[in-house]
Simulated scan of single mutants.
Amino acid sequence: MTNTEAILASARKTILSESESIAALSQYLDNDFASSVQSIYNCKGRLVITGIGKSALIAAKIVATLNSTGTPTLFLHAAEAIHGDLGMVQPGDVVICISKSGNSPEIKVLVPLLKRGGNILIGMTANKNSFLGKESDYVLHAYVEQEADPINLAPTNSTTAQLVLGDALAICLMEMRNFTSQDFAKYHPGGALGKKLLLRVGDMLDGTHRPIVAPTAGIKDVIMEISEKRLGVTAVIDNEKLIGIITDGDIRRMLNDRDSIAGVTAADVMTRNPKTITTASMVKDALNTMENHAITQLVVADDGEYKGILHLHDILKEGIV
């Protein structure tokens, strides 16, 4: 076996091992999982998730997922908790403690302190008979047969199982809260994702460079307007109402079909009833319209009142695609 073949074989073995461990998790779901979700949903305080070692790293990721999906959650490192940070846990909070073995020294110190405060304690562990498993009000059974590494020591399958259980919690809570894409957008205002969910056509429309011609305008004037505004299109406006558009493609086709452009007006060339979108529409919807109709620009109009042109390049510059 070559070096490359050996590497790929090892990688495939790891991926299959982890996928099998995840698939087996569903059989360990029980009433404790449902009660845990219900307790978090009914919680009047916050959810606090703690762990030690690799489990702490997984806890931090689960916290991020829950916060972004509508469940206010705090991360508490188990080692720091017993050195002052335990003060962040308040009456009414629900605590999830993550530990594969459930018998780590820090966990054994922390759990009685949490129980003393009267907080609901949810243990996520591979060992239901561990100290954490026995002391918890509910247990999320993150059991795996073995780790993916050859010596069965490095947290691999076990941490993946913890992560997947955390995702399952988050999705259940999202569904119970009827969490929508609009809710999601409130927690993701930045970057391409935020723009895709929040940005409206009116937010990015340049109203100062609106290509406009009258239906009686000559073709030379039409070409000049399209060239000057550099959007590849102009709107045709009559009595302040949109009646059509002319694209540079329309001009080329007209020149191919006619020996002379003398006397030809915008009304003779324009496309009536063009595709339009409102200023209140989401940019993502404008992009979908462009893709569905194989066009690169959309006329923006509110109740027939022309507002401007939205070009595909404008959307690309925003990094939405």
Rank of each mutant, 00 (worst) to 15 (best):
L110A: 04
I120L: 06
A81S: 11
I82G: 04
V95D: 07
L110E: 09
L76M: 03
G84Q: 07
S39Q: 06
P112S: 03
K61Y: 07
Y28T: 14
L29G: 08
T69M: 12
I49N: 00
L74N: 12
I82Q: 07
Y28A: 05
K54V: 07
V95R: 00
L113D: 09
L86H: 06
I62T: 10
V109L: 14
Q27E: 15
K44W: 12
Q90A: 13
I96D: 01
V37A: 08
L29D: 09
K100T: 11
Q38D: 13
I52D: 05
K108Y: 06
I58N: 01
I49R: 02
R46Q: 15
G53W: 04
A79S: 15
V95I: 13
K100C: 12
L113W: 01
M88V: 15
V63P: 00
Q38T: 13
I40M: 06
L29R: 09
Y41G: 08
L57W: 09
I107H: 03
T73H: 07
N31I: 11
C97R: 04
F33S: 08
I82C: 07
G84H: 04
V48G: 02
T125H: 01
T65N: 03
Q90E: 14
L47V: 02
G70K: 00
L25M: 10
A60D: 13
Y41N: 14
E80M: 03
N31Q: 14
M124N: 03
T125K: 03
A78C: 01
V94P: 00
P112T: 03
F33H: 05
S39F: 05
Q27M: 13
F33M: 02
D30P: 00
T73A: 14
L121Q: 06
H83T: 06
V109H: 12
A60K: 14
Y28P: 01
E80K: 08
P105T: 10
D85Q: 03
L114R: 13
S101T: 06
N119G: 04
S26L: 12
G92H: 05
L74R: 11
